[in-house]
Amino acid sequence: MAQHSSQAIATLIDELARLPGVGKKTAQRFAFHLLRAPGERVLALSEAVRAIKEKVWHCSTCWNFTESEICEFCTDPRRDHSLICVVEQPNDVLIIEKTGHFRGLYHILHGSLSPMDGIHAEDLKIQELVSRLNESVREVVIATNPNIEGNVTAQYLARLIKPLNILVTRPAQGLPMGGDLEYADDVTISRAFEGRTEL
């Protein structure tokens, strides 16, 4: 391994290399870029990094990231508080929000059931979801990923929530827009046919 003339540079490279998608070489490039960059830019970056740990925590209602006790979604009176969309990760909220189509609230599980990775029901924010479900909640949309673990998690939640007389739905699965039928796999096509809608 290359020896660095400064311990500070070596430490920075090691820390950067821990980021996802960043290897040793990229980490070195970042580090030398920062060394050359104006002081105020580097300080702004380090402040920004520090701030996410000092100011950001989880919303006590939906477990999304927020800077207040309760996040801006959960306190927004214009949103439909009788509708809750359950997702695996905070990132999923950004994706759904981008469409501007969903006006309900969110609940972030922070993962999906995966025993082989040691993730069981009690490791997810499931109890926190159930305790949110009072009589004003009309529908829960379970938008976990359409893979094995996401589907099992959805089934698990459905079993918990349905007895509370709340409507449980799952977003439709099927053909992508702009796609050719020819290139879709059997499972996707059969799912799309099961969930067909009247024109």
Partner: peptide
């Protein structure tokens, strides 16, 4: 049938999860 391969890979994953 490439869809068979997907089903097989998913199945093997389910077996692992279920064993766990």
């Amino acid at each position: 049938s490439p869809a068979y391969l997907n089903a097989l890979q998913d199945y093997k994953r389910v077996v692992k999860q279920r064993n766990e």
